[in-house]
Design a binder for these strands. Structure first.
Lengths: 204, 204
DNA sequence: CAGCCTACCTAACGTGCGTTAGGTCAATTG
DNA sequence: CAATTGACCTAACGCACGTTAGGTAGGCTG
């Protein structure tokens, strides 16, 4: 849209400013949603940390729910991209085990360090209005499909332990990774042991 | 306390009534906390489903936080007891693998079916006031110790996969189990595959 | 049977929330 | 330079919340 009339004259300084404010609101909202949850984060909180009053947020977003919708959607998309990128990185012919290791590391890194958006999604999804949860379900299923494929490959190549269900393994792995939000302490360093242990447990 | 003056005269009919109401409030609160979370559950909600008005709850509990304190404490204690009982059941000389299997099954059963208190604890703990979280930390650590011991025994008997850290394994297993609250659907039957898969993954 | 206590209810208080209407003022435009 | 518009702010609205003060009906005690 801005590309079609791409002469970057002085005309767009305000547009830049607005886009910057919008981005900062999203960043602040993601940080607060991660730290305090959806319900305990007020628009006055967000406004204050974003350098404006609560009412002014409505210039950029239609409602608290819409703001959350954008934050949580970005959250899934960020892990999704990070994991897909990590999976493809080792080379197209890498075996399932290596791809699983890369995926776990990317998911955990995004969740704990790289993105407040992703952790906000994980934390707030159960507390957000049902209508919003439905709007997010498509993006969630798309990300889920990546892991489904990955674990199916593991099962097909016989890399999973005997008596292991691919679906259950996926739920177990993602549960173990997501649950790290509950006990992760940045002061204690990154939980490298977790991905190592999961890999040793699920990849023969 | 009631045992010392144990003549169950007609004097205690009211005490029974009060105790019954109190118990029902706790049950309702646990159910709602599990379903809607701490912040989104109002005392008016609880009162209505318990058959009284919101203000009347203060005859039995000093505050919403105190009520939640009791619910969440019962929640840990219930899993704790269920898991300890399950661990001791196979016989004192059972191997670590059998005890791990029993512990996982008991934890999952309590979480998903047996106790709204336990699931309320898992769901609400992050959203509850920090002072309450601190009051619960002792009981949580006691339960944690059970799993620490269990996984240490696994490691000592060489039952864990090579390159597996006992602590990371504990966090992974409990994370995988607790996360089932997010995807568990009672209509689809109990997730037996999850404990099976976890056992196959973590017990050689 | 008088008086008390238990287990509630009624009605309100103050607070903080999401949201909105209308104003302001600098930057941009013609 | 006059007019417009973009990016906010001020001030308030209605509502729901946790909480509390005071009332009340029925069982219990002496």
């Amino acid at each position: 849209m801005t590309e079609t009339m791409a002469q970057h004259g002085p005309a767009q300084k305000r547009a830049r400013r607005s886009e910057g404010s919008r981005q900062q609101i999203l960043d602040v909202a993601a940080k607060l949603f991660r730290a305090k949850g959806y319900t305990d984060t007020s628009l006055r909180d967000i406004g204050q940390q974003a350098g404006m009053k609560a009412g002014s947020l409505y210039y950029h977003f239609a409602s608290k729910e819409q703001l959350a919708a954008e934050v949580l959607l970005i959250g899934v998309q960020k892990v999704h991209r990070a994991v897909v990128t990590a999976i493809d990185a080792p080379g197209r012919t890498a075996d399932a085990r290596a791809r699983l290791a890369a995926a776990m590391a990317a998911h955990l890194e995004t969740l704990l360090d790289a993105s407040d958006y992703t952790s906000a999604h994980i934390r707030c999804f159960p507390d957000v209005p049902a209508t919003l949860r439905m709007k997010l379900s498509a993006a969630r299923r798309e990300y889920e499909a990546v892991w489904r494929l990955l674990l199916d490959d593991m099962a097909a190549s016989g890399a999973l332990p005997a008596g292991t269900d691919a679906n259950a393994a996926r739920l177990a792995i993602l549960g173990a990774l997501n649950w790290s939000l509950e006990w992760y302490d940045p002061a204690l360093g990154k939980p490298l042991q977790l991905t190592q242990t999961l890999l040793a447990a699920f990849a023969r």
